[in-house]
Nucleic acid binder design. Structure first.
Lengths: 193, 193
DNA sequence: CGATTTTTTGAATCATATCAACGTACGTGG
DNA sequence: CCACGTACGTTGATATGATTCAAAAAATCG
């Protein structure tokens, strides 16, 4: 059921058997088929989703109709519209399965309860959000200061397992450029070596 | 000494008098004059800095010599090179005072001790990093999907008190564009209303 | 296999960067 | 307190690079 989740948790913050049992009482699992939504813009994000298996993306659509991918999530990662989850405001992101996927869900109330009842859950949460923050800071720095070539190559180097599993136009949507431009960037790179 | 820091802390997580005393034993204060560095690229970031008074910026310099501002920090905000602080790796950012500034410092060892000894400190940390994450996510989304006009106006709307206190070219460095372009963006905006 | 999606390519257009010059404001020492 | 020097902001001309639109080629899926 929650193998990967518990494995990740224990890797970050080792749990006793009792804590592990208590924790599991607040978890549920869900399967999401390829191209199905886990969350749609406008709904409230009711859960944090930990990916046991599969691959998802969180994206928004701007007024010109273009998609912008804010996050991919592979096995072992957490995905949500965190702002919506924490505030109860309508979500601004869509979360869609790119492959058939299995997630562990932590509801808003489960999250609140776990934070109060299991100190290690708060530590786990803190470590997760810290990691996410650092990764996003790196991405932001790269977005405002690096060349397209460097940004693409950095993405491939950092997330080779995502790159092999998503279509190229989604990488473009993640990097913030058009599919045509990404195609040309790749060509320039291949010519240069 | 630590008025703003304690005020912010209590606002997020109310402390008992005993906790407050214990916390303060791990804090120190420091004054940084305008244009002085709190941290320079290459050093290890030894402290989290909470701003009691003044204004700082964290920025990096790319290979073409351009500055990119990753963060401003006003009174009540925390600034650091978090990656360096947490890992002990050399910092990739410079932190410089834009005005004469007073900060409360939390050293690496103080941070580690406080996390273990005062559960509310972990909560405070978690809330801070969560807020920083959400703010950065908004910024990233805006960077990859909005027009320059919208990005500039969103910045002004969100941080009016920063905009009043920093030169325009630093806002350009924060938004990731040249000072000339920002000047033209402002002109386009003023013509349009 | 046929249908659809994805990627590539080309040409024209649009937006931002660059380089250079000028005007203005600021604060610092005389 | 004034004058000079340095920072800062604006403007113009040009160059660069990404987007757009259209179409074709390639890959994938049922």
């Amino acid at each position: 059921m929650f193998e990967k989740f518990l494995e990740q948790f224990n890797k970050k913050v080792p749990l006793t058997a009792a804590e592990s049992t208590q924790l599991q009482e607040h978890l549920t699992v869900k399967k999401v088929r390829k191209k199905q939504y886990l969350l749609q813009e406008g709904e409230v994000c009711k859960n944090l989703a930990f990916v046991e298996k599969g691959l998802l993306r969180a994206y928004s659509i701007d007024d010109t109709g273009r998609e912008h991918i804010i996050q991919f999530a592979l096995e072992g990662w957490v995905i949500s519209d965190l702002y919506s989850f924490l505030t109860g405001e309508p979500a601004t992101y869509n979360i869609e399965a790119i492959e058939d996927t299995e997630v562990v869900l932590i509801s808003q109330s489960a999250h609140a309860t776990l934070l109060l009842q299991i100190p290690k859950y708060e530590t786990f949460t803190r470590l997760n959000i810290t990691g996410a923050y650092l990764a996003m800071q790196k991405r932001l720095t790269s977005t405002i200061s690096a060349t397209l070539e460097d940004r693409y190559e950095a993405f491939i180097a950092l997330y080779p397992h995502i790159a092999e599993r998503v279509p190229q136009h989604m990488i473009a949507a993640y990097l913030g450029l058009t599919p045509e431009t990404l195609s040309r960037v790749r060509k320039r790179i291949s010519l240069h070596k």
